Computed example of a mutant assay.
Amino acid sequence: MIALLKRVEAFLAKSRMGPSYFGRRAVGNSELVERLRKGGEVKRRTERSVLQFIERECESRFGMTIDDILAEAEEAEEEPETEGAP
């Protein structure tokens, strides 16, 4: 479920969609993200539905895949902070 949560979190950050709204839109459950954040499990069918929702939304909103968004987020984490630099 960690891989699923990582994808959900990356999508939420990119889309700025709230976690409750995301869960409701993805699978009709506003508690989905909270459950995942607390280490809870979901059924395989639910996981598939969530991933399909994310892929559709990424393509239509950003013209990207979730893997592109994950790579973008990882690159941003690796960039050193240049605080105070011109």
Score class of each variant (00 low, 15 high):
Leu4Thr: 13
Ser20Asp: 09
Pro19Trp: 06
Phe11Ser: 05
Glu83Asp: 14
Ile2Ser: 12
Glu47Ala: 15
Arg35Asn: 10
Ile66Glu: 03
Asp67Trp: 06
Phe53Tyr: 15
Leu5Asn: 05
Ala85Ser: 14
Ala3Arg: 03
Glu31Met: 11
Leu32Val: 04
Ala13Leu: 10
Arg24Gly: 06
Val42Asn: 03
Leu70Ser: 09
Arg7Trp: 01
Arg25Phe: 00
Glu83His: 12
Val33Trp: 01
Ile54Lys: 07
Gly39Trp: 08
Glu9Phe: 05
Ala76Phe: 09
Ile2Leu: 11
Gly23Ile: 03
Phe11Lys: 04
Leu4Pro: 08
Met64Leu: 15
Asp67Lys: 01
Lys43Ser: 15
Met64Ala: 15
Ile66Cys: 05
Ala13Cys: 00
Gly39Leu: 07
Ala26Gly: 01
Met17Arg: 03
Phe62His: 00
Ile2Met: 10
Arg45His: 10
Glu78Cys: 10
Glu81Val: 15
Glu74Trp: 07
Arg44Pro: 07
Val33Thr: 02
Glu41Tyr: 09
Ala10His: 02
Lys6Tyr: 07
Ile66Thr: 05
Glu47Gln: 14
Ser15His: 03
Thr82Gly: 14
Pro19Asp: 04
Gly28Arg: 08
Ala10Asn: 08
Glu79Asn: 08
Arg25Lys: 14
Glu78His: 11
Phe62Leu: 07
Glu41Cys: 00
Lys43Pro: 00
Glu57Lys: 11
Gly84Tyr: 14
Ala73Cys: 07
Gly23Trp: 04
Leu12Ile: 05
Leu70Cys: 10
Lys6Gln: 13
Gln52Phe: 06
Gly84Gln: 11
Leu32His: 08
Lys43Gln: 11
Ser30Arg: 08
Ile69Ala: 00
Val42Phe: 03
